[in-house]
Structure formats: C-alpha cells, structure tokens
Nucleic acid binder design. Sequence first.
DNA 1: TATTACTTTATAACTATTCTAAACTAGTGT
DNA 2: ACACTAGTTTAGAATAGTTATAAAGTAATA
Lengths: 138, 138
Amino acid sequence: MTIEQNLVKKLRSSNLRPTKQRIEICKVLFDRERTFHFTISDLAKILNLNSKNKISLATIYNTVEILKSKGHLKEISINSDKTFFDTNISNHHHFFNENTNELTDFYDEDISRIKIKKNIPGKKVKSIEVLVKIANSN
Amino acid sequence: MTIEQNLVKKLRSSNLRPTKQRIEICKVLFDRERTFHFTISDLAKILNLNSKNKISLATIYNTVEILKSKGHLKEISINSDKTFFDTNISNHHHFFNENTNELTDFYDEDISRIKIKKNIPGKKVKSIEVLVKIANSN
DNA sequence: TATTACTTTATAACTATTCTAAACTAGTGT
DNA sequence: ACACTAGTTTAGAATAGTTATAAAGTAATA
C-alpha cells in the first residue's frame, strides 16, 4: 500500500474526506521516521515552500485542529506564545531545552513509575505528563 | 512590619522601585493566604474593578514580566490561548481539571520520587514539572 | 532643588488565531 | 455522465493577546 493510500485510509477512518490539501498536510506530518514537534507556522512554511499550489493558512489551522480532535495529533504544553503540536500521540513526556527551545520526547520507560499520592474526590486521572527543563550544564 | 513595608522590601531587594502601581499589583498577588493562578486579564480585572486610579495594561504586563524575571512569579504550561502565572514559585506540580479548566497545586510530597533514567550529554536538569489532567469520573 | 534614570501611560503596531461567506469539490444517486 | 448535496477551501476581515513607542511623570540622589 502506498503512503498516499495509507493516509487516505487514515482520513477516511476518521470520517474526513481525503482532499488534496489534507493529503499534502498529512504527508508532511505523518510520512516521517521520527515524531514531529511543530507550530502552525512551521507547518505552513514546509507546505508552501516549494509547491506552487499554496494551501491557505485557514485550511492548515482547520486541518490541524480536526486531526487533533480525532486524536491524530496532540497539543503540547510549553510556555510559549505559539501553540505546539506533536505527531506522537502516545502517552509520553518531554525534555525542553531552554537554550535552543527544542523539544525531545521521552517515554514511560525512561522515568521511574509515577504515583500520585493525593486523590481528588470524584475525579479520574486522565493523563500524567512530565516536562523536564534542561539547559547547558556549564 | 506592615504588608506594604514587606512589599516595598521585596521590590527593593530585586532592584525595583516601589512605585504606587507596583505596590498595588504586589498586594493583589502576594497578600493572600493561598497561591494564586492568574492570567493578565484576571489581574487587570481585579486591579481596576473598584479603584479609581486605573493601572494601565502596559504596566501590568511589564510588572508581571519583571516579577517573573526576578523569580517572584512562575509562568505555567497549560494548553491555552492565554498565558497563566503562578505566585507559587517553589517546585511544584499541577492538577488540571478538564471539566472546569481549574488548576490546583500539589507538591513533591504528593508524588513518588521522580527519577529520569535518560540523560542528555552536556545538559543539566533545571526542573521537573508534572501535569496531571483530571476529569469527572462518571 | 536640580538632575538623572527609571516608570507609567495611551495608543499604535504586531502576531496568532478565528470567523465569514463565496467559490469549489468529493461523494452519492440517477 | 450529470446533478445534487454536504463538506471543504479560500482570501480577507475581524478578534484577542501581547509588545513597542515615545512623551509625560516620578523616585532616588546629590
């Protein structure tokens, strides 16, 4: 199955019409080895750099929002004026490099088991996310 | 020592002139029992609700930014279109209530000791922050 | 009191994001 | 193939949070 067919399947399975634009966007997001941390403007730059058929910003916003709502993207919590997204939707954690503003994933196996000793009556834990801020050690 | 004298001391110790506006702002931020989670607009609303000497938005932004840079406030990472701040500057963690968007602090003693098993060469861990998302259990 | 550096302010500018409404397109039935 | 409908894209306007500007005001210091 080609990459494109896979993406069409992914879109259809979320009840999204596989339009030209969505497929282009999904190629950038999901056709890669490693997970991808990005802002809307990162994505727009990549999409519209070399192609003659520019995709409008509104479509990029819409598509990212809808992919997030379908669970194909995650929004990341970092102090910033921009919103970051992550193609890694599994439960995982981040290193945030304060010198370069870079994000790196790490996983449950890279951290000791976390146990919350306080419980909030009537509430259920939905997720536990750890943000480790790092910086040059010198 | 009065509250005001304390705040003046706090400002001076950070090389900040204790102006009328800064003292007003600090009163709202620091003269309270519990820690305070707020956005700029929360703070502006409180400051300018009943007083006749309105403090300009620019001053509020400036002051919060400078208090943050001096370590008297912390910026909080939450997915949101607004920036949140916290008067609790100690290392601590948050519950985020997905139903109400409320934040609640919790501390190192409420969580098992966290050990990061992965190390990034040349980098030092500056902080470890945990965000626990909770929601109604029904 | 005079001087200087810092601070406040209104307002303009900027930037990220959302809205709008018209044009376009994919899917479906005929 | 054609027409219909619902869903999608688009440019541009609108909105909202935040930062910059430059003039007026104020605190500290001598």
